[in-house]
Design a protein around this nucleic acid. Structure first.
Lengths: 168, 168
DNA sequence: AGATATTATCTTGACGTCGAGATATATGCG
DNA sequence: CGCATATATCTCGACGTCAAGATAATATCT
């Protein structure tokens, strides 16, 4: 019995004509995702990093050396609107975690790069982040984790699918 | 292979020292929750309802007759900040889906009630909403749904737990 | 009853996000 | 070469959210 079941009971009383069972699964999924995001975010915040900032730094970090991407590439990889990215980059630049350079090969564009501090920070935060993720997953037994991941994979397939990259 | 696996591959190359398997599950969970929320929201939007507005109307509706709650009760049930609720109520009142009356028994408080239009709208939207939820769950086979729901229940238990209401 | 504490709601300012449109540069076509 | 179109990024205004604090009314305690 959780908060979601409580809500379902109310609907059951008010609209007994509706089959609200799916609401339970969807509600739990959303609530769980929110709790997990919040838990992980509290980890970033200890380093004065917002989820938005973490997202950008992590994207630059996993792009590999020299830890540079154009704003357009960051927009594509993080799937946010252009104004959002400009805002994120402004804040990260203000605190010296990234720097923007003009792109010498294309006067329209620029290059966003991790600074030394940005690289050091994200490398440290990502370790804590992964440790936190391990901790959160402890809630499930190993076989449950596998079951869950299977279900998520199948369901997510309803929305996105990527062809495997060929190993050159 | 999905977007999340793509990201994991990058991390695997860049930080082979980290065990990023949990990132896959957590990433898929979050992305799936986002896709599902967006899909359902597109249903509300057809009726000029935001997720925020839907949340309030649905809460009033499932409270049962006479479909009235105080702002405080709405805040408690929806778990948003007080300023958020004021804002939501302002907008719903502007379009005539709810009305605010002073509480005759407590001059500090007020009572928020569904209007006739609000009630008709939420009753219709909730049916479509439930139908959409059924559609979304079709992605999983029945036994997978049960498995998934079990996992979600267990994991959500890490964050919230409610004692079963006694059946008087 | 009067002073004080508590409660219910609203106000305000900041943040992160989006989307439309502005600006500057590049590219392609005749 | 010059003009039209495309592209990269930023600007701006709106929204939903939160947290802190303001306001008004009620409860409590002597």
């Amino acid at each position: 019995m959780d908060q979601v079941d409580r809500i379902l009971q109310q609907w059951g009383r008010e609209r007994p004509d509706l089959d609200v069972a799916p609401m339970g699964t969807l509600g739990r999924l959303k609530r769980l995702a929110d709790h997990l995001s919040e838990d992980l975010a509290s980890g970033y915040r200890m380093h004065d990093l917002t989820p938005a900032g973490f997202d950008v730094l992590a994207t630059l970090r996993r792009a590999g050396k020299p830890y540079e991407l154009s704003p357009s590439a960051l927009i594509a990889w993080t799937m946010v609107a252009s104004g959002t990215m400009t805002n994120r980059l402004d804040r990260l630049e203000d605190v010296g975690l990234i720097e923007r350079r003009r792109n010498p090969e294309d006067g329209r564009g620029s290059v966003v790069a991790l600074t030394a501090r940005g690289l050091a920070l994200i490398d440290r935060v990502i370790e804590e982040h992964v440790a936190n993720q391990h901790r959160l997953l402890q809630a499930l037994a190993p076989d449950q984790r596998a079951q869950l991941d299977d279900c998520l994979r199948v369901w997510l397939g309803m929305f996105e699918r990527v062809e495997a990259p060929d190993s050159a």
